[in-house]
Amino acid sequence: MSASPWKRRRFLSAGVSSAAATFSGCRRNQNPWRFFTLEEAFLVEQICQQLIPADQDAGGREAGVVNYIDRQLAGFHSRQQNLYRRGLVRVDEIARAMFQDRFTSLASERQVAVLEEAETKETAFFNAILAHAMQGFYGDPRHGGNRDYASWRMLGVPPRPVRGRQQYDLTRGRG
């Protein structure tokens, strides 16, 4: 596999994200998220970075998983908005009960401990955010996650081939 398709894609996606930045800058509301508050988005990003930590490869944060989740909560997964709102509050409550501080201020090992607690105590929310984090990290980049094909590079899966479509006339030779 040559590196060229990746280069072209990086260039394309850079163009897209700068366009998005310009767009969000124009809006009166400075919060760029569709569903989350700024605080919630930061918390979700930190949770996702523990669910899929960065190492030699990108983690949940670098892959833009929070962007995927935000987009789906404002769209297909909108039924789960309340589950998230309440669940995120609960995660902070667990963090305070265990370590007397909010989740985002805790060191990495403590964040893991809080999430292990949430996994058993806030099962519905934890399962939802875990599923969404995996979707946003390993799923198709078109839905807002897996930025720059981060997970597919990690796994060594080639990008989508740009071939096939409209290579022939569908109206000929059928039936």
């Binding site: 669910l51 899929i52 930590p53 190492d55 999430l115 997970s151 796994l155």
Partner: peptide, 16 residues
């Protein structure tokens, strides 16, 4: 594991 380092490591090491 369902998440965290172990899960990611498994994905990376064994997917292919």
């Amino acid at each position: 594991g369902r998440w965290g380092r172990g899960h990611k490591e498994f994905m990376r090491k064994w997917y292919r």
